[in-house]
Design a protein around this nucleic acid. Sequence first.
DNA 1: CATAAATTCCCCGTTTCAGGGGAGGAGGAG
DNA 2: CTCCTCCTCCCCTGAAACGGGGAATTTATG
Lengths: 210, 210
Amino acid sequence: MSLVRIFIVDDHPMVIEGMAAMIQREPNIELAGFAMNAASCLAYFVNNTVDVVLMDINLPDKSGIDLCRELKEKHPAINILAISSFNQGTYVKSMMEQGASGYIFKNVTREEFVEAVTSVASGKEYLNFEAGFAMREEKHRMERLPVLTRREKEVLHLIAEGLTNLQIADRLFVSQSTIDSHRKSLLAKLGVKNTAALMKFCVENGLIKL
Amino acid sequence: MSLVRIFIVDDHPMVIEGMAAMIQREPNIELAGFAMNAASCLAYFVNNTVDVVLMDINLPDKSGIDLCRELKEKHPAINILAISSFNQGTYVKSMMEQGASGYIFKNVTREEFVEAVTSVASGKEYLNFEAGFAMREEKHRMERLPVLTRREKEVLHLIAEGLTNLQIADRLFVSQSTIDSHRKSLLAKLGVKNTAALMKFCVENGLIKL
DNA sequence: CATAAATTCCCCGTTTCAGGGGAGGAGGAG
DNA sequence: CTCCTCCTCCCCTGAAACGGGGAATTTATG
């Protein structure tokens, strides 16, 4: 097996140290460098390249999802292994869609970590158990969630702002009857019976960001 | 300065490795041991003790807040330094109330980390900039938040479940007029005009856990 | 014990929401 | 062109919520 050169993007010094320590014990993995934000990561890859990038999802200046897409556009050969603290299925799904080759959570063991890096380096996909589970959950959630139209989403967000149907109608320059219809559709599609339940459902399912 | 013996409680191997690596370079700090869950942490302290415990807030089997309280009850001499990934002001406040001597986020630099450990070891309190800011924010938030009575909270949660005033009245064995009154108080106290705004406000301010 | 706060309940009226139905026009997909 | 979805608007009725008041009883709290 050939030498795997990796680059770390994470804003937690202690995580960088930890990964570096794990890697040091592996003879066939080499740490080429690291960055603590998206900007300096992109700067590095102007004149350099590596085999694998270990990328945290939460960066101070940019989301890991955006950085992943940009990096993949410019350097399609680099395999990206996403690393995240919490198991939000939506993040796992997004990262894989943006071209990541793997996804692990920060509570993986050293053995799993090394396996993930070598797997991704050889072009294979790697999801640790929790990440795979989270992604399947997310896909299942997306499937059973009804599709809201553009107008319905607009109305939903204005409802969440505390506006009445009449106020929403004025805001969108339509009749109150129209908003009434949209509101009825929302309740029907999401299977709830009143405004409170509507709000709860939408917050729980990420239809409204607070 | 004397030798500081520390113990780490964190369920992320790479964070333990990282902190261990940082500590190794400090001659006057010694890593006595570590645990990856609350249970094995408590087991360790049956027959051992240390100067400082570095404790993650999110543990698989118990919340760091509970573990902090238990540990402080049994070993008041141990100084606890809380370590957390995200800056939830409510966590910072809770941990300090449960007897923690310090709180830092995982994105601290090595220098800040070492300073925090030595500070806490010598009995002083240590909050890194973000943690201090988050706690002040939280305190300020608590102060301006109106106090809800027990009954109002009950009604609030049942409203969030999507129940109507009549259904809530049946559930609590009171008249619908009563629930009407409580609901009016909620709207008045929280300064909102309808159910949607009520839900949004309560979710944003942690009055409702989803 | 006296006072304050919380809980309970009622009146009135108005506004908003919920649920049922129908219907015409715009625009995209096949 | 045709079908279908979306957006628009309307009718109706009943239920629920909002807003303003008042008042009795229990429960903390000083």
